[in-house]
Amino acid sequence: MPEFDVIVLGTGLKECVLSGLMSVNGKKVLHMDSNPYYGGESASISPLEELYKRFQVSAPSTSMGCGKDWNVDLIPKFLLANGPLVKMLLYTEVTRYLDFKVIEGSFVYKGGKLQNLMGMFDKRRFRKFMSFVLNFEEKDPRTHHDMDPHRTTMRDVFRHFDLGDDVVEVTGHALALHVNDDYLEQLCLMTINRIKLYSESLARYSLSPFLYPLFGLGELPQGFVR
């Protein structure tokens, strides 16, 4: 009877990541799932009829075409190109089994239209702010511009660089990806690191900082268990 170092139950993303990492580090892993598909709650469902069956609704309309042409993510989510998950995919060599598409652009939609929110002076101030972010090192006070990241709120950082309200809104929500304004009264370190990650991800492919698996997020769990 075969012996294993680790038994992993379920093929959700976190289970598959753990399985892949342990396998790469020399562990003999038995990976099991009672479902007929990979991914758990982060699966990509195909054909379309399976999605309708999962949610116990009537069959899709014939106007939607062939069910096999659909691949629906239960939890759609973009990946930052320089984020920890992409680094993990590279480390475990899972990228050999996956194809990615660079999202062609990201935009700010406000007031019923796409916005160009920065005038000439805003751009100058924002450029100085971004230079500060990209050069920022938590353990190097010379990069802090006399602001202690463990005492200074993000609102105070924006004030330091005299950024306008529209620029602050774009920076906080489109770059740092905060879902509300609570971050403004919180310490600045987390938001600075988020903006830095966005900028580093954008630098990798120029068009956009975001990647998406070509055949859906359900490919990620499958890649880790191959």
Rank of each mutant, 00 (worst) to 15 (best):
P36I: 02
T143C: 03
S19W: 07
E169Q: 13
G111T: 07
I103V: 14
K27W: 05
N82L: 00
M154H: 07
L21P: 07
G119N: 15
T92A: 11
R127V: 08
Q56T: 12
S63L: 15
Y52N: 09
S199E: 14
R159G: 00
G40W: 11
I75Q: 14
G10S: 05
M118K: 08
F78T: 10
M130G: 04
L177R: 09
L85A: 08
L197G: 02
K113M: 01
Y205N: 11
K68M: 07
M147Y: 02
M154W: 09
A176C: 01
F126R: 03
S206I: 01
S42I: 05
F107P: 05
R226Q: 04
L211C: 03
F161G: 06
I192M: 03
V8H: 05
H31L: 02
Q222P: 00
M22Q: 08
I103Q: 02
E15Q: 14
V24E: 00
D148Y: 11
K101F: 10
L134R: 08
F121P: 05
R54A: 05
N71D: 11
L30Y: 13
L189R: 11
F132I: 00
T62N: 12
V108D: 11
R124H: 01
L18T: 15
D73A: 01
A176V: 00
K27M: 02
T92Q: 03
R155V: 02
N71S: 14
R127D: 15
E169C: 03
P76M: 11
P141V: 06
H145W: 01
G218P: 12
N193M: 07
N135D: 10
S131E: 15
H145L: 01
E50A: 12
L202M: 14
L197N: 11
K14V: 05
G26P: 01
Q115Y: 09
E200L: 10
M147S: 00
G67H: 06
I45P: 03
L114R: 09
S201W: 07
Y91S: 13
S106E: 14
D148A: 10
I192S: 03
A43T: 05
A43G: 00
D165M: 06
Y38W: 12
F210Q: 07
S208D: 02
R226E: 14
K196R: 12
E138H: 07
V157D: 02
F224R: 01
R204P: 05
A176W: 01
A81H: 06
M22C: 14
N35C: 07
Y198L: 00
T143N: 10
D148G: 05
K53A: 14
F126W: 13
G83E: 12
S201N: 10
P47H: 07
I7N: 09
T171L: 11
G112R: 06
V6G: 08
